[in-house]
Amino acid sequence: MIAFVTRRLLLGLLTTWLISVLSFAIIQLPPGDFVDAYIAQLASSGSAVSAEEARSLRELYGLGQPFYVQYGKWIARVVVGDFGESMEWRRPVIEVIGDRIWLTLALSFAALIVTWTLALPIGIYSAVRQYSFADYIFTFFGFIGIAVPNFLLALVIMYFAFTMLGASVGGLFSAEMTLAPWGWEKAWDLIKHLPLPAVILALAGTAQLVRIMRANLLDELRKPYVVTARAKGLSEMRTVLKYPVRAALNPFASNLAYQFPQLISGGIIISIVLGLPTVGPLLVKSLVAKDMFLAGTIVLLLGVLTVIGTFISDLVLMWVEPRLRHQLD
């Protein structure tokens, strides 16, 4: 069990490192160094940067030196929480991002919870009542979930809400709460607005997991030990839940761990369609404006969040899945 946790932790650290390198590469990718870009940006807005200042900026970021030196200087400052300055907003990156990162996290976790609570019971039901009316309904929705990219789904739902109900379903807060300081009321407002985007975001993953769960459980249910259990007079509920479901859980659970990266990814797109105040719209805007420190930081933070989310999913998985706990002992 300790071996499993350490292995996951090491993989997580490796992933974090890779993400930090990639994020830095993204900051570096646009042609020309970013001090030039910064100076050009400032010049276009009317203020000038002295040669002295430019030189000290170059010094600070280690420009002109090899990639790993620049990366080292950058990461050393990131570790202590200095993510640099956003060129477009002229404010520290971390201030621009603000609580958007927490809202991103809230959205992804809400979607994860929706996935977990829907996929398992629906998967079990569809397998136990195979070819029933409800099974067909679930299969139908499952195919919609798989075939319709979630941004399209968001778009269609927005359209129908707008034309039929005359309401805008976007946003995470009601208009009067957007600028209000954090408190119980605002949190409650968030909770009221969260379900719709969370369900839209969760649909694809849920559909996938339902199919996996259904297929696995169907395989298990045909095994002789289930017949034996029935013959011995176990109640149907107990027969299904006690053994076949637990046996079918393994592929289901190992797939669950990969849901979090997909939710973070998907969240970016649906945030843009639904106008949610997460980091998604900010990331796209900063990339279009070539505001690279902001963009790189967002990619880095999203990556780290993904690693943490995946690690937590792994721990949960280990808790529900005894075989994993013991196989590595």
Binding site: L18, L29, Y258, P261, L287, V307
Partner: peptide, 24 residues
């Protein structure tokens, strides 16, 4: 195998966005 696990746990869209924004 470890590389595959790491790549599978990367959030794809932010990385794609970052890389494709850098295309001249």
């Amino acid at each position: 195998q470890r590389a595959i696990e790491v790549i599978r746990s990367l959030p794809a869209i932010p990385l794609w966005l970052g890389l494709s924004a850098a295309l001249p």
